[in-house]
């Protein structure tokens, strides 16, 4: 749609601007403030320059947390995106069962995140959980509080359980918007099921899938509550992701300076990646509009 140039539209945006400035810019300035200073208590602060940042760049703790975070986000995307599209392709198109599937699939999305953690914490327990008990009876050694692989598997399966529906719902919305004429044309051309997917469905859902990937990447990149409840970041540090590490540093040990420097770099990484996604997204939209 063509937009009229109207500078007065700024007035309509003002309430949002004030509110978000209050809840985002103001706190962020505190973070910036801490990131460059040191304190020995009593509210006395000393200029620390860039020392927190250079410490951070040489700290194994930060790099390994970042590494784990990257691996986690990549695994999550690699499972959830194809699985979500596959589920969406198999969903009923209309009627009672379509509504039923939609409601059931949205259910995990509406559970408070720590309850999601609790559900899987219980579900995976060898003594009282269905999953843990079954695996144990099958003779598979499984203990998510002690073993590295069990902990990672639990956290990943939990995230797949929690969020695949989001990808599926987005893909479903995209598929619903494809006019039937496309399928009829494909039928006349005797296109195979794979070709229909590759040349009709996939290009048509690209736009929404970018939103899905963007949302899933961001949310998995700042995941905190669920793994914290299930594994507490352990065993050792093996499931300590960036947010868990940051909260430990800021609220647990009250290391304000390093935590603030950490926060800023964390935020910058996220901004950078979302900017890349956002640019791709708006370009896709433009191409569709043209």
């Amino acid at each position: 749609m063509e937009k009229t140039v109207n500078q007065k539209a700024w007035f309509l945006v003002l309430p949002v601007l004030f509110l978000v400035a209050f809840s985002a810019v103001l706190p962020l300035m505190t973070v910036v403030n801490y990131a460059f200073q040191d304190t020995f208590g009593n509210n006395q602060f000393f200029w620390a320059g860039l020392s927190w940042f250079s410490d951070l760049l040489h700290s194994d703790r930060m790099w390994s947390a970042l590494g784990r975070q990257m691996v986690f986000s990549i695994i999550i995307l690699a499972i959830e995106v194809p699985l979500g599209i596959f589920v969406a392709l198999n969903m009923p198109k209309k009627g009672f069962w379509a509504s039923f599937c939609l409601v059931t699939m949205s259910l995990p999305l509406l559970i408070p995140w720590n309850v999601v953690g609790t559900i899987w914490q219980i579900f995976g327990r060898v003594d009282i959980g269905l999953l843990g008990y079954t695996l144990d009876k099958l003779g598979i050694p499984y203990n998510y509080t002690q073993e590295f692989y069990a902990a990672w598997a639990t956290v990943i399966v939990m995230d797949v359980w929690h969020w695949t529906s989001l990808v599926a719902l987005l893909a479903y919305a995209g598929l619903q918007s494809i006019p039937d004429a496309y399928y009829q044309a494909a039928k006349i051309d005797q296109a195979s099921r794979w070709k229909v997917f590759r040349f009709i469905e996939l290009p048509k859902i690209m736009g929404v899938m970018m939103i899905a990937i963007l949302l899933r990447f961001m949310d998995s990149f700042m995941i905190y509550t669920e793994p914290f409840v299930v594994t507490g970041g352990g065993p050792g540090n093996s499931t300590t992701f960036l947010s868990i590490d940051l909260v430990k540093m800021a609220l647990g040990q009250f290391d304000l300076g390093p935590a603030a420097a950490f926060s800023l770099m964390y935020f910058l990484v996220i901004m950078l990646i979302s900017w890349v996604f956002y640019t791709i997204m708006t370009n896709l939209e433009k191409r569709e509009g043209a």
Binding site: V20, Y224, I244, L246, F267, I270
Partner: peptide, 20 residues
């Protein structure tokens, strides 16, 4: 402005916990 708004959707709550 629109992109700046979006970045707030992407801001990790962990970053804001202490300042809030």
């Amino acid at each position: 402005l629109f992109f700046w708004l979006l970045t707030n959707r992407m801001a990790p709550p962990a970053v804001f916990a202490l300042p809030f």
